[in-house]
Computed example of a mutant assay.
Amino acid sequence: MNPEETTAGHLQELRRGTVVLACLVRLRIPDYGYALLESLNTLGILVDANTLYPLLRRLEKQGLLTSEWNTDEARPRKFYRTSPSGEQLADALMTDWRRIDDALAGLTTGDEK
């Protein structure tokens, strides 16, 4: 495996968990899949549709998201929202994310605690 493939693989692994957290946080305000995809990518959380849509279905099946169809427009859209269980998970993940971020900052600055 060449260095670029190794880096790409590790970056993909790092992003995998962050996309779950980003979806749970972002969907505190209900939105549909394509708008979520665009807003995450605009924020620099890179994810493609082939990853996002199955993730949304999985999170919904796990009870972390709820959804409803909006049929008011010509084309029906499925809107997702973070459920109370999803809120609890987002809070737990965010707490751990901040702890890990602080620890990594300490490692990179040599200011280990």
Score class of each variant (00 low, 15 high):
residue 89 L to N: 02
residue 38 E to D: 05
residue 61 K to V: 11
residue 39 S to Q: 15
residue 38 E to R: 10
residue 59 L to I: 01
residue 41 N to Q: 13
residue 65 L to E: 00
residue 2 N to T: 09
residue 79 F to W: 12
residue 10 H to I: 01
residue 40 L to H: 04
residue 64 L to F: 10
residue 77 R to P: 01
residue 43 L to K: 13
residue 10 H to K: 12
residue 67 S to T: 05
residue 48 D to R: 09
residue 97 W to C: 08
residue 14 L to Y: 03
residue 71 T to F: 03
residue 57 R to I: 01
residue 14 L to C: 10
residue 1 M to C: 10
residue 82 T to H: 03
residue 88 Q to E: 06
residue 7 T to C: 05
residue 45 I to Y: 07
residue 53 Y to H: 14
residue 97 W to S: 09
residue 6 T to Q: 11
residue 42 T to A: 15
residue 98 R to C: 02
residue 10 H to S: 07
residue 113 K to N: 03
residue 25 V to Q: 14
residue 5 E to Q: 14
residue 100 I to M: 11
residue 56 L to G: 02
residue 66 T to I: 11
residue 93 L to Q: 06
residue 60 E to Y: 13
residue 17 G to I: 12
residue 96 D to R: 15
residue 12 Q to H: 13
residue 69 W to E: 13
residue 47 V to N: 02
residue 83 S to W: 04
residue 3 P to E: 11
residue 104 L to E: 03
residue 100 I to R: 14
residue 6 T to K: 06
residue 8 A to P: 00
residue 41 N to A: 11
residue 58 R to M: 05
residue 23 C to E: 02
residue 58 R to D: 06
residue 29 I to K: 12
residue 99 R to L: 07
residue 36 L to E: 03
residue 54 P to Y: 04
residue 108 T to F: 14
residue 30 P to F: 12
residue 88 Q to V: 06
residue 85 S to C: 05
residue 94 M to C: 04
residue 12 Q to I: 10
residue 39 S to Y: 01
residue 76 P to W: 07
residue 94 M to Y: 14
residue 49 A to W: 13
residue 63 G to W: 09
residue 43 L to A: 15
residue 90 A to Y: 09
residue 38 E to S: 08
residue 82 T to C: 01
residue 88 Q to D: 09
residue 44 G to D: 01
residue 82 T to R: 03
residue 18 T to D: 03
residue 50 N to K: 14
residue 56 L to C: 08
residue 112 E to G: 04
residue 2 N to D: 09
residue 43 L to H: 08
residue 29 I to P: 01
residue 6 T to N: 07
residue 42 T to S: 15
residue 91 D to K: 15
residue 33 G to T: 11
residue 33 G to D: 02
residue 4 E to S: 15
residue 48 D to P: 06
residue 45 I to T: 09
residue 54 P to H: 07
residue 38 E to C: 02
residue 30 P to Q: 08
residue 65 L to W: 05
residue 99 R to C: 03
residue 27 L to N: 05
residue 83 S to C: 04
